[in-house]
Simulated assay, not measured.
Amino acid sequence: MKRLQSIFIFFLLAAILAGCRGSSGAKGESEVVVGFSQMENNNPWRIAQTESIRNEAKEQGYGMVYTDAQGDTAQQLSAIEDMIAQGVDYIVLAPREYKGLGPALKSAREADVPVIFVDRMAEGKAGEDYVTFIGSDFIEQGERAAEWLAEELGGEGNIVELSGTTGASVAIDRAEGFRNYLNEHASDMEIIASQTGDFARSEGQKVMESMLQSNGGNIDAVYAHNDEMAIGAINAIKSAGLTPNEDITVVSVDGTKDALQAIIDGEMGATVESSPFFGPLVFDVIEKLEAGESVDTEILIEDRFYDENNAEEFLDEAY
């Protein structure tokens, strides 16, 4: 009798654990479970992206296993391996860095688990290591920021750049696009200093403080790879007794609520939108894959551009 009770308890616990799989609710044995590996969840853009994907999973009835790598590539690699071991059906991956995730992608391929890159690329071959990339054209974002700045400064001036995470595809591309435009259309504008602020407000402020000390009154503009660093730079500029967007023009990328408010307040010049609302796009892809349909290997998001002419109009829509 005790043996029968033990067996019953074992299977009861197994059933409970199976029912708890995923953070978005269970549908039973037929449930499709999506693993979402977020690189970090510590700023408004990442938080909005995470909420969009998790909310869409819940709304459409998918199970979800969610992990936050907390800005650590090794931790993200381990998390993806764990998801594969748990038997997820798909992996949605926001890569911390372009390189370093090869072993996890290999494991996913061997387990026949489709991988969908969101907002950043990682090293791999489309159609083999990953199904598709969903995100913005980061090179174009850099070009649009440079175009606005060149018009604002009349094609002349010294720029300091606050770049994103070293080695991340988004930082590489936003830098490339910005330089491409200057080289082709504004050769009298020069980037006199460039340093990573790791996409963080506090780091952006710290780096900008250092640049102000090193370059004195020689800075005409700041190009930040995201709004968090741009706002950090604005804080540093004000602490130095200067007026942001008058003494030093500020342009950025993301389109956060704080950035649009800074434009309205006259402290930031412009920001290129980089939408974080990936949920509907991600699950549209998964629905097609579930139906046996093919999907494009690249799905680009159309981003808006915000300046003094429209920042107030879109403030309530921003995150």
Results as ranks from 00 to 15, higher is better:
I47W: 05
Y90E: 03
D72T: 06
E246T: 14
E228N: 14
P44Q: 11
S23A: 14
S136P: 01
T256D: 02
E203L: 09
A259K: 00
R174I: 04
I299P: 01
I231D: 06
Q195A: 11
V131F: 00
I91D: 01
N245H: 11
S274W: 04
E228C: 03
I231F: 14
F278K: 02
G154D: 04
S107E: 14
A259M: 08
V222C: 04
S24V: 08
I301H: 04
A193H: 06
E293G: 09
G124D: 05
A240N: 13
D173G: 02
D254C: 08
E246P: 06
S107T: 14
I9T: 14
F11H: 10
S24M: 12
E110H: 06
R120D: 01
P44Y: 09
F199C: 00
T166M: 14
M64I: 11
V88E: 00
A79V: 03
G19C: 09
E56G: 03
N42E: 11
A224V: 08
D303F: 08
I237N: 07
G35K: 02
V272T: 08
D137E: 13
Q86N: 11
G266P: 09
Y223N: 00
R46M: 02
E40G: 09
E287P: 02
G155I: 00
F278H: 11
T165R: 08
P114M: 06
D68L: 13
A108I: 09
G154C: 07
A14S: 09
Y66L: 11
D307K: 04
R109T: 11
A233S: 13
F138M: 08
H185T: 05
K206G: 06
E267P: 05
A224M: 09
Q75H: 09
R304F: 10
N180S: 11
F178C: 08
V253A: 03
I286M: 08
E147G: 01
V272W: 00
Y62Q: 09
M121R: 15
P44N: 12
A126E: 12
M1N: 13
E317R: 15
V32T: 15
T196M: 07
N43W: 05
V34C: 04
A18Q: 13
S107H: 07
A146F: 12
T166W: 01
S275N: 12
E56L: 03
V92D: 02
K288A: 02
A168L: 07
E267G: 00
D258Q: 13
G71M: 10
N180H: 12
E123R: 09
